[in-house]
Simulated scan of single mutants.
Amino acid sequence: MSVRNRFGSAAAIALTTTVSAVLLSACGPDNADSGATAAPGSSAPGSTAGSAAPGGASHPGTPAPGGKEVNGTTVANHLTISTGTRNVAMNGTLVDFGSVVRDLAWSPDGRKVVYVGDSGDLMTANPDGTGKTTLARHPDGEEWSHPTWQHAAKGPSGDAVPNETERYNNIVFTAKKAGALRLVKVPAKGGSVEDLSPHNSEGGDNAGLPQPPQTGNTWADAGGRQAAVAFANTPTNEVYIYDDYIRPATQDIGKGSQPALSPDGGQIVFVRAVNGHDHLFTRSTEHDQKAEKDLTPSATTDFTEPAWSPDGRTVAARTPDGVDTVPADGSAAPTQVSTLPGLPVYRP
């Protein structure tokens, strides 16, 4: 079974009724800025397995205190779920952005979100839905999707390669026109939209390496401290990592789709069809480490659209029934944490 298509507009409209029924008595979005975070070394709630065999999802439908249905998001676990409607689940409640939010992603500091609005333009906003700004307007006949915030973090000494921090403060996303897919980028502070052209440098260690495809690229995900971008190529069903922090280099990870880089850039999770279902696989991003781990070896459902927790210990994924989490080391089975269908993403 191939990776499921994301729900369309009809399903999104139907979700409006569903998400309205999942309201919780919990902290609002502003409380995430109060300093409440998971204890160092702890896993996100829901990341421990139930009684299911490893790789087989356990769907207990855990009730919250008072018998209310949980949507799986808390201040402590940083998980957020965008549903393709105007509502985004976070901190145990639903935040109404006032207009449709598609493919929400967080800034590196967790103070802003970027998403595709109901007009199809690229938007930014505060976590509570205020301060909405149009970052870039899509051309007629072009569809934009799945933005990610590319950045180069400062090192332990407080500095970065000169000019790199600002150079890599970009939003990377997919542009689709006349059926053709390509990756594009725009400065996070606003500016012109440009093509992101993954390639290998012609000299040094990259001499002789084949050049990656320039079309058919989609589902970008930026991660790590050096602005690497993972992406999928649809025609070849291959996953790649592009890194031009020092010199351009593109690494072919192997068969799969919908990749996501861990917060430290050392691991990648992606989706691959196995025995009729979409499984989650992880592997190191090191060139000489190619061993893969199937996090869902006994899957009886489809796991798609994975995302890493900020501590890198948990992977959340969408299923037909909601959102599941699974330990990133594969030590336990996936567990359903939310019956709210949508795109899971963690707030840094």
Rank of each mutant, 00 (worst) to 15 (best):
E142R: 07
D264Q: 06
G265K: 06
A125H: 09
L135G: 12
S99E: 09
L104M: 15
Q267R: 13
L183Q: 02
T301M: 07
T134N: 07
D329S: 07
G72Q: 03
I246T: 00
V193C: 11
T85H: 03
S58T: 14
P45T: 09
A10S: 05
V239I: 08
P63D: 05
V113Q: 07
H78G: 08
T300C: 02
G110M: 10
G203F: 12
K132D: 01
A11V: 12
D288G: 14
L196G: 03
H277E: 13
S51N: 06
H279C: 13
T300Y: 14
N200L: 11
T18A: 06
P235D: 06
D264G: 13
L104Y: 06
K68L: 02
P210V: 00
V70S: 03
T165K: 11
K290M: 15
G158Q: 06
V75F: 12
F281D: 03
D30A: 12
T73D: 07
A152D: 07
P341D: 05
N91W: 10
T314E: 04
S51D: 01
S99W: 05
P108M: 04
R247H: 13
R318M: 13
D121M: 09
D264T: 11
P341R: 09
H59S: 14
A44I: 10
T319A: 05
Q336T: 00
T48D: 01
D288V: 07
N233I: 07
A49I: 09
P213N: 03
T130V: 04
S338E: 01
P306M: 07
V326M: 09
G66M: 14
L196D: 09
T17N: 00
S145T: 06
T73I: 13
R86A: 08
T62M: 06
A316H: 09
G98P: 06
R137Q: 07
T282M: 03
T17V: 00
S42R: 05
A299R: 01
P320N: 12
T215R: 15
S82C: 10
A222F: 05
S192M: 00
G266L: 11
A14T: 01
A152C: 12
R182W: 04
Q289L: 11
T130G: 08
T174I: 02
I268R: 03
G46L: 13
V75L: 15
A230D: 09
P248E: 03
K132T: 14
P45R: 10
G179R: 10
K290S: 10
A291N: 07
T17K: 00
G41F: 08
G98A: 14
A317L: 05
P162N: 13
K293I: 04
V75K: 08
A11P: 05
D243P: 06
T133G: 05
V161E: 08
D329F: 09
G256W: 11
D30W: 13
V19D: 02
A136F: 10
A316D: 15
T83D: 06
S338V: 04
D109N: 08
T124W: 01
S42T: 12
V186E: 15
P147M: 14
G216V: 14
T304C: 13
C27E: 11
T339Y: 01
R247A: 15
E292G: 03
A260F: 02
A76M: 13
S2M: 11
G98S: 04
F173I: 05
